[in-house]
């Protein structure tokens, strides 16, 4: 494309965008529309303690999150259908001793932090997807440094097909249990605090572990391609 034409196009696009930005309410002002309708209602009648973001993701719009979890799982299935397993022809390059030592040193701490992020997501910022990215990134890091065979050895063996689908499966189980307890699909029984907590934990763990394995398998499919 002609650079002058491109510059004119971008400028023409920027002017209405900047004009629209000037009309936005100030950041954090309490009388802007998003703070006066649903959000206020939700903060006032939502959970007393805990992470409001998690409450909205798993309860208020739980069906949307269920759909997202299924989409990520279907993405992995599509990749696995297209990618054929092939033993890597190249042996893993031997990493420098410093890199190998550091990665071996930090691996258990990152793993612990990943599980902490998954499980503490109910109370503080965090949750299944973030923990999944941390754990999946850890597997990819190990594979990048020590070779894909090592990364594959970190994954569970026989349970892998089931654990990959842990996100949708845990969500489905929570939906059925909630349906029996409250009469609504994906309803959360607030009158049974222990069951409520267990359901939220189960869904977070399912998304976290399933998501981590999906990230890892996507990486391994890339290495085998």
């Amino acid at each position: 494309m002609n650079p002058r034409l491109a510059a004119a196009f971008v400028t023409g696009l920027a002017v209405p965008m900047l004009a629209a930005m000037a009309a936005l309410p100030r950041h954090g002002s309490p009388d802007q529309p998003i703070h006066t309708h649903v959000a206020r209602e939700y903060i006032e009648s939502g959970p007393e303690t805990g992470n409001l973001v998690t409450a909205i993701l798993l309860d208020y719009r739980g069906m949307d999150t269920f759909g997202e979890v299924v989409v990520i799982f279907v993405g992995l299935v599509a990749v696995l259908v297209l990618a054929r397993h092939r033993e890597p022809a190249l042996p893993a390059a031997s990493p420098s001793p410093i890199v190998a030592f550091i990665v071996r040193l930090v691996t258990p701490f990152i793993a612990l932090f990943g599980f902490h992020v998954i499980l503490s997501g109910l109370e503080v910022p965090g949750g299944g997807l973030q923990g999944a990215a941390i754990l999946g990134g850890l597997v990819i890091l190990n594979g990048f440094v020590f070779g894909p065979q090592h990364a594959r050895s970190l994954l569970p063996g026989r349970l892998l097909p089931w654990l990959q689908g842990a996100g949708p499966l845990a969500f489905l189980a929570a939906g059925i249990v909630g349906g029996i307890a409250t009469g609504f699909a994906l309803g959360y029984p607030t009158h049974l605090p222990l069951l409520h907590e267990a359901m939220l934990m189960g869904v977070e763990l399912g998304i976290g572990i399933g998501g981590a394995l999906i990230f890892s398998r996507l990486y391994l499919a890339l290495e085998d391609a």
Binding site: Q130, I134, I140, Y219
Partner: peptide, 11 residues
Amino acid sequence: AAVGAGVTTLL
């Protein structure tokens, strides 16, 4: 931090 800086960069 986890997805943008971590996983994406590694991939």
